[in-house]
C-alpha cells in the first residue's frame, strides 16, 4: 500500500499532474487480464440476465419477441396469481424437506466412512456412487419404484398390510416423494465433499483431546464440527441453491402435478416459456427466483458465516 501512496506524492513534487490515461494504467492492465472471463461472463451470464430482465417488462408474441410493453404488470400478475404463490410455497417446502435432511444424512454417512476400518473404501465408494448417476437416469428408476400398480414401495407396504400410498399421484405425498428421491440423488456429492473435509482435520487435535479424556460426542461437537464448518458452509450454500433450481426430477417424475403440488418455480418457468410461450411472465418468474436466491445467499453469508471457523 505504501508504495502506491508514495507515487502520487512524487508527481506532486515535480508539479506534474498525471492524466487519466496515466493513472488508470494498472486498471487497464487488470482489465486486460480479466478480459477473457469478462467476455465469457458477459456472453453467457450478463447478457442473458439483462435480456431476462428486459423481457420481464413485456408480453411476447408467438415467436417469443417482445411485443407489448406492460411495465410491472407481469410482476403484479404473479404476486396476485394463486398458481405462482403456490409454486413459491412448494419451492420453499421443497428446500426445507431436502436441504437439512440431505446434509444430516450425508454428514452421518461421512462420519461413518471416516472411521479407519478394513474395507471402508468399499462403503466410501457406495455412499458416493449416487454422484455418478444422472438425474434423468435415477428419476426413471425412482419412477418405477413409485409406480402405483407395479412399484416396489407399494408392494413392500402390501407385504405388511399397510394401506397403499399413491406416491406421485396424491398431492399430499408427491412433494415428499420427489424430495426423497432428490435427497438420495444429492447425497453422493455432499458425502464426498464432507468426507474430504473430515479427512483434512488434523489428527493431532483428536489425539490431544483423547489424552485429555474427551469422549466421542465431545470431540464431535468441539473439534469435528468447528473444523468442518467451512466445508459445511459450502455444502449448505450449494445445496440450497441446487434445491431452489431443481428441475430434472420434477419433469420426469410429476411434471409439476398433481394439482400443482410439485410445480416448483423453475419448472413453472419452463412451462410458461416453452409450453405456453409466455416469455414475459416466465422472465418475471426467473427474476423473482434470482432475487430469492440472492437474498437467501446474502442472509446465509451474514448470519451463517459467523459460525464458520477458518483455520
Amino acid at each position: 500500500m505504501s508504495t502506491i501512496h508514495s507515487r502520487p506524492d512524487e508527481f506532486i513534487a515535480t508539479e506534474h499532474k498525471p492524466g487519466v490515461w496515466e493513472r488508470s494504467r494498472r486498471a487497464r492492465t487488470a482489465i486486460l487480464y480479466l478480459l477473457p472471463s469478462i467476455i465469457l461472463f458477459s456472453v453467457f451470464v450478463f447478457y442473458p440476465m439483462f435480456r431476462t430482465i428486459y423481457l420481464s417488462f413485456f408480453l411476447t408474441d408467438q415467436a417469443g419477441d417482445a411485443a407489448v410493453f406492460v411495465g410491472l404488470d407481469n410482476y403484479k400478475y404473479l404476486l396476485d396469481s394463486p398458481a405462482f404463490l403456490n409454486s413459491a410455497k412448494a419451492t420453499l417446502l421443497f428446500v426445507l424437506y431436502t436441504v437439512p435432511a440431505g446434509i444430516l444424512l450425508s454428514l452421518f454417512l461421512a462420519l461413518l466412512a471416516n472411521e479407519k476400518l478394513r474395507g471402508i473404501g468399499f462403503f466410501r465408494t457406495i455412499y458416493s456412487s449416487t454422484m455418478g448417476v444422472s438425474v434423468a437416469a435415477s428419476s426413471v428408476v425412482w419412477l418405477f419404484m413409485f409406480h402405483p400398480s407395479i412399484g416396489m414401495f407399494n408392494r413392500f407396504l402390501a407385504l405388511f398390510d399397510f394401506p397403499q400410498i399413491q406416491w406421485l399421484l396424491d398431492p399430499q405425498w408427491a412433494l415428499v416423494s420427489v424430495a426423497i428421491s432428490t435427497i438420495w440423488m444429492n447425497t453422493g456429492f455432499s458425502f464426498l465433499i464432507l468426507l474430504g473435509g473430515l479427512q483434512n482435520i488434523d489428527e493431532h487435535l483428536y489425539e490431544s483431546a483423547r489424552i485429555d479424556g474427551a469422549g466421542y460426542f465431545y470431540r464431535l461437537r468441539r473439534i469435528t464440527l468447528p473444523m468442518l464448518s467451512p466445508t459445511l458452509f459450502f455444502i449448505i450454500t450449494i445445496s440450497l441453491i441446487n434445491a431452489f433450481q431443481t428441475f430434472g426430477q420434477i419433469d420426469i417424475l410429476t411434471k409439476g402435478g398433481p394439482a400443482q403440488s410439485t410445480n416448483l418455480i423453475v419448472y413453472s418457468i419452463y412451462r410458461e416459456a416453452f409450453v405456453n410461450y409466455q416469455f414475459g411472465t416466465a422472465s418475471a418468474q426467473a427474476v423473482f427466483l434470482f432475487l430469492c436466491i440472492l437474498v437467501a445467499t446474502i442472509l446465509q453469508f451474514r448470519f451463517g458465516e459467523r459460525r464458520v471457523h477458518y483455520q
Binding site: 486498471a27 487488470a30 482489465i31 458477459s42 450478463f46 447478457y47 439483462f50
Partner: peptide, 17 residues
C-alpha cells in the same frame, strides 16, 4: 482503480443491453 474497473464492466453490460 476499482471504480474505473467497475465502470468499464458496467459499460460493457450497457452495450450488450
Amino acid at each position: 482503480r476499482m471504480r474505473i474497473g467497475f465502470i468499464m464492466v458496467a459499460l460493457l453490460a450497457l452495450i450488450l443491453a
